[in-house]
């Protein structure tokens, strides 16, 4: 088996995550889909690391994880304060830019 298949899997997961972002309205679920996309990328990085025979891909994946952790912290805090003020976690409710 060729590690390329991991790349296919990563592409599939990424697309599923992106589609989830587009169709879900609950901000938390949208956020989870973003995490899924990030994880798909990480898988691709790890697979590339193996394909190229060095550890740089893993390092990038590691940094991605850290950034994702920071992002989750801030994002969830935003969702919580949004819920407090609007009593809703729907992304469609925050549509003040609408004419």
């Amino acid at each position: 088996m060729n590690p390329v298949y991991y790349l296919y899997l990563a592409a599939l997961l990424f697309t599923i995550g992106a589609t989830g972002v587009l169709i879900r309205r609950n901000a938390i679920v949208v956020f989870m889909c973003v995490e899924l996309m990030l994880n798909a990328c990480n898988l691709a990085f790890v697979a590339f690391s193996r394909l190229h025979g060095n550890l740089d891909g893993q390092i990038i994946a590691f940094f991605t994880m850290v950034v994702a952790a920071a992002e989750v912290v801030v994002g969830l805090a935003i969702i919580v304060s949004l819920f407090r003020s609007r009593h809703s976690a729907s992304v469609d409710d925050a549509s003040l830019m609408k004419l």
Partner: peptide, 17 residues
Amino acid sequence: LRRLQNGYARSYAVSMF
């Protein structure tokens, strides 16, 4: 064209995607 700017983040996400 205004109709495109419906204010929904998800619509904008579709354009980005």
